[in-house]
Amino acid sequence: MPQTEPISPPTKPRKEPAPAPSPRKAPQPKPQRELDPFTPDWPKTRPMPVPKAQVGR
């Protein structure tokens, strides 16, 4: 029986299988900022409206 060469080991170590992915987290909705009636986004350089007046009495 002819002798067969032993199969040479692979030159590169075989990659270990990637670890199983951890259970994927459900995408979290981006927390929506509660709008505050008294804190409007207002550009710092923009002038305010002219004050409103009570005229007469």
Binding site: M48, K52, A53, Q54, V55, G56, R57
Partner: peptide, 10 residues
Amino acid sequence: GVVGLGGVER
């Protein structure tokens, strides 16, 4: 004749 005013200031 303005007797009052109201507005917003930064």
